[in-house]
Design a binder for these strands. Structure first.
Lengths: 283, 283
DNA sequence: GCTTATTGGCATAACATTATGACAAACGGG
DNA sequence: CCCGTTTGTCATAATGTTATGCCAATAAGC
């Protein structure tokens, strides 16, 4: 049984071939299969491998070059950029950044919009609101070093928002404002999945439509188990990833994995999970 | 600052307009904004609302009808199908299914390939192997109810694999085989991100290339802190999602979120988080 | 039965995507 | 310096996408 890499794009897809190939190569670079300095297959080879015409392969490679991920040279070929696209940030499931190792980052939050509006059904279901209830919607973008990392949409029930006198236009996280207003946040349920950038998130995060995004949804409860906030955050996977450290414990009914909360405590050396790209470059 | 909910489409995107509109409406249905039985805006209204021609609106609606999400009737209009698509499975971060509520599921594992081969650089980095080292690669697909849910690629260093006398062709999870062979698994580091289906994973999971996938990578360590396995698992987000329940605790330096290991213990009701992802479309 | 709303279908035209093929220009190795 | 390799550029043709406009067929209300 052999591991074969029969690679074929889907000509029947509504997404144009050059875009399919571009996204594919892009994810290979971000995922670590193609490393900085590596030589990418030439246009001719790509034609062969993916059964497309040279114009299509060329366009995919040119899009990569336009994004700065590769460098193309006549007669020489196409190579992945040396300057490593910065390692994606690692964050624990609580959504707070951890590996802010280099502290030179300019982090910033921009409020795109905020308004009190009737909560759509999906939000009502998450927040357990009656039909016709209104909620405060706030959309924000978080940037690090002038790169948009995450796009966020928060919903807070009208009564909660009023009671806490929230400043929706302030870049201060809504959750923090809630806590400052005396609402004791006690638990949350978070769902992690993947999605594609639509027009709205693509514009906010400065990625092409159809790019993959990490999609997290969280419902936050106060001490009385009342849902006080629903947040959906979309992250750019090449800039931000979720990392979980786990310990194996023996329980009553067999072994189980226990997530270790935050940081990198118990003497576990900092072991890369072999995500994205590799670190150093030869001198 | 107003929240413009008119998520305008992007005529400049490589993704055709009818597809953008199709995806938009589709995510509204999956997300709960449009509920079963609801009447969707007619072609004329969609033209107005999204500034597209009727042919485009019609095509988007027809794609929805082809997928079975809506029913169109001349003179009457377009309505969301009554039967709602099944909820995705929820699993905790340890990768083990939980919501196997209905126990009638036929779960099965198929071994696609397995081979001892030189470990590619990205794997060597994860497993801390020297250049030229070999590793056992095993690719598997896990299905539930005849639907492919996850695609898995495991790498085990040659010496570990030999010492444990692994049966790579057996559907028994490699990690379980390692444990049975006396290798005590004690900790792991897992990274969660999002990616696009390439040719290989698309074929294995029966989704179109370019579909979004949840991408988890895990390095497993034994009691001696030796990396014994690297696993990369790709999940179909419309069938499988990761769920984390968290508790807020007061620590020494401020509050922190503590993940609650597994299951849905402390009386927290089951709260849906509403996904919005791409499904396979067979033209 | 008549009217209105809504989808189905067709024709035309402008533009984007893709394949095929040919030639020019830069790079690198012998 | 020559030569093979690789990318840059161009032209042509088939196909897909989108807008505009028109008319037919079906459903629902009066």
């Amino acid at each position: 049984m052999t591991a074969q890499n029969s690679a074929t794009l889907d000509p029947g897809s509504p997404v144009p071939l050059y875009q399919q190939l571009y996204l594919l190569l892009r994810s290979q670079i971000h995922g670590g299969a193609l490393r900085p300095g590596d030589k990418i297959m030439g246009e001719a080879e790509l034609c062969e491998a993916y059964d497309v015409s040279r114009i299509t392969a060329k366009r995919a490679l040119n899009e990569l070059a336009d994004t700065g991920l590769v460098i193309r040279k006549r007669g020489s070929g196409t190579r992945v950029t040396d300057r490593l696209p910065p390692q994606p940030l690692k964050a624990s499931i609580d959504g707070l950044l951890e590996k802010v190792g280099e502290m030179g980052r300019n982090t910033s939050v921009r409020v795109l919009s905020s308004a009190l509006m009737p909560a759509p059904p999906e939000i009502r279901a998450a927040l357990n609101l009656p039909e016709g209830a209104r909620a405060l919607q706030s959309r924000r973008v978080r940037s690090l070093n002038d790169q948009s990392v995450s796009f966020l949409e928060a919903w807070i029930p009208e009564d909660v928002a009023e009671g806490a006198a929230l400043e929706a236009e302030s870049p201060t996280p809504m959750l923090l404002q809630l806590e400052r207003a005396g609402i004791s946040v006690s638990s949350a349920t978070q769902t992690i999945t993947a999605t594609l950038a639509d027009a709205l998130s693509a514009a906010a995060l400065d990625v092409p439509m159809g790019a993959p995004l990490i999609d997290t949804r969280r419902v936050v409860f106060d001490a009385q188990d009342r849902a006080v906030e629903f947040i959906r955050v979309l992250y750019r996977p090449e800039l931000y990833q979720i990392e979980v450290a786990m310990r194996r414990v023996q329980g009553d009914n067999g072994a189980a994995w226990v997530p270790r909360p935050t940081g990198r405590p118990e003497g576990r050396p900092d072991r890369p999970g072999a995500p994205a790209t590799k670190a150093p470059k030869t001198p």
